[in-house]
Amino acid sequence: MYKRRYLGRRTEKEIEQDVMRAIATIISEKGISSVTIKEVSNLSKTDVIVLERRFKNDEELIKAYTSQFDYFLNDNIAINPNDYKNAEVFFMNLIEKFIDAIYKNKDMQSIMVWEMYENSSLTRKSARKREVTLKEFLPSFTKQINNEKISPRALFAVLTGGLYYVLLRGNRSTFCGLDFSTKSGRKLLAETIFKIVRQFINE
């Protein structure tokens, strides 16, 4: 539940913090599509005119919030393959960090679900920006695989898509009888993906 911490006149920084916390609360309770200047104004106790001066419209408000996570994966999975003694150790560490980062960051989960299911100019722009950051990371993945039978990029796309799906489903139910919301379930997921990847390392 959102709570304001300040009494009296707020500084610019405090207003921004209140606005961002209000947006996070709305996303958590109702989803990104419910973020509007009016809703944020009510929850953050900030005049609509103040928000409109800063953000112009609902889309700009959402953009300001989601832009905090543009480099989420790069920041949380900042590993150098050259620091590892072999490709297998690199991939196991990469997979574990990826699963841990996605699972623990609920804000990022909400943003990814929103990007996948809502087709708007903002989600398309956000998805394209994430693709740019992914391209910076892909060489670290692809250069570890020397296999003529399969495209490393296609392999990464399939594995990443599968990870997103099972991790972003939340706690709705098990999937194929497995509970990936548990530590043991996520460990099994990481080990299974690693075994798949290992089949294509220097084959």
Rank of each mutant, 00 (worst) to 15 (best):
P139G: 03
R153T: 13
L94N: 06
D107F: 07
E136P: 01
Q109P: 01
V113D: 01
D107Y: 06
E96C: 06
S151M: 08
V113E: 00
T142R: 11
R128Y: 15
F141L: 04
T133C: 13
E131L: 15
A127F: 10
L159A: 07
E136D: 11
F91M: 01
D107E: 07
Y164R: 12
C176I: 14
S151Q: 03
L159Y: 03
K85E: 09
N105V: 03
R169S: 11
F156S: 09
K104R: 15
K85M: 08
G161Q: 08
R130C: 09
K143L: 09
S173H: 08
N105F: 10
Y103Q: 07
Q109E: 05
I99E: 02
W114P: 05
I145C: 04
Q109Y: 02
N171V: 10
E88F: 14
V166W: 05
K85L: 14
I95W: 02
S110C: 10
F141S: 04
V158Q: 05
T142L: 04
E115Q: 07
R172T: 11
T142C: 09
M112C: 13
W114V: 04
G161C: 11
Y164G: 04
K125G: 00
P152E: 06
K129N: 12
V166K: 03
N86Q: 09
A154K: 13
K106N: 11
K125Q: 05
N105E: 05
S120C: 01
L138A: 08
L122C: 01
R128F: 15
Q144C: 13
A127Y: 07
A101C: 07
E131W: 15
G162L: 07
R153V: 12
V132R: 13
V166E: 01
A87T: 05
S110M: 09
T174P: 05
R124V: 00
V166H: 07
V89C: 08
V89H: 14
L168M: 07
L122E: 01
T160I: 06
I145R: 00
R130N: 13
S126T: 04
S110D: 01
A127R: 15
L122Q: 00
S173P: 03
L155I: 02
K106A: 10
N171F: 12
K143C: 06
K125T: 03
P139C: 08
F137Y: 13
F141V: 01
Q109N: 09
E88Y: 14
N171S: 14
T123E: 05
I145T: 01
F137I: 08
K143G: 02
D100Q: 09
S126Y: 02
F90S: 06
I95F: 01
R169H: 10
R128M: 15
N105R: 11
M116D: 08
P139Q: 07
V89F: 14
K143P: 06
I145N: 04
D107S: 10
C176Q: 12
I95D: 04
Y164W: 14
R172E: 12
F175W: 13
K149M: 13
T174S: 12
